[in-house]
Design a protein around this nucleic acid. Sequence first.
DNA 1: CCAAATCGTTAGTCACACTAACGCTAGTTC
DNA 2: GAACTAGCGTTAGTGTGACTAACGATTTGG
Lengths: 127, 127
Amino acid sequence: MQADRRVNEELARADARKWHFAVLATLDEFGAASQAELSDRTRIYRSDLVAVINELTARGQVDRAPDPADRRRNLITLTQAGRRQLRELDKVLAEVEEEVLAPLSPVERKQLTDLLTVLVEHHGQPM
Amino acid sequence: MQADRRVNEELARADARKWHFAVLATLDEFGAASQAELSDRTRIYRSDLVAVINELTARGQVDRAPDPADRRRNLITLTQAGRRQLRELDKVLAEVEEEVLAPLSPVERKQLTDLLTVLVEHHGQPM
DNA sequence: CCAAATCGTTAGTCACACTAACGCTAGTTC
DNA sequence: GAACTAGCGTTAGTGTGACTAACGATTTGG
């Protein structure tokens, strides 16, 4: 919870929240996608995603356009500004991570992430 | 987040939330206390604690009475029903923990809790 | 004795998880 | 090709939890 609070604080200073980061990072990793795909990948409910995409488009960080191949869909695309913001947030989050993990040695950090990775992968989507 | 969701689900089935558990457990560990002390120990804001204590008294799990030694204070006391509920919640949470940590061996579980303990103790209250 | 601090309380904001329902579009079936 | 079904985006609303501001009552320290 304390780590979470620090993350939120620092993201706020960069005019962002966790959801914004999640969407930007997902678009960067998997490329342009519909809102439904983003919802699946980020675990953000499609109802909440609407507002997030609104905010990101208002900041010019993503582009929302109807998908010509399926007119029910919106295609969300990462813009240059979005890519810049993502790099910025990556930096911010790396700093917080360093701060949070400060008391652990490199070996211990690897142990911790390995253990947590096992947990996440074990109970995948459903749980 | 998935573990948190499971915890919330199971607590809800026992007619409780995380805050209720936190207060009951703290009263059990440190004995009767004022709301301000509970706020310090549980990290629940004193403004939110009011409602939690209201709910716990409504369920008969704690008792709220003015402290004769300092009439600004309310003394919160664990009742028998509160102790019973705490034991119940302990059981529920142990089950969820077992479920969450299922893929880890006993040694790995100890590693994980040790690492997390280091983190929590390193950045104590402030952070 | 008076000012400052503490305590409980009320009211309100914000982030995020989650549900229900509606209109639109696409694919399927008869 | 009409009707049904399913998927998509959107709106509105609920509940939990973190956090702030302010107020009346009481206690404490100079």
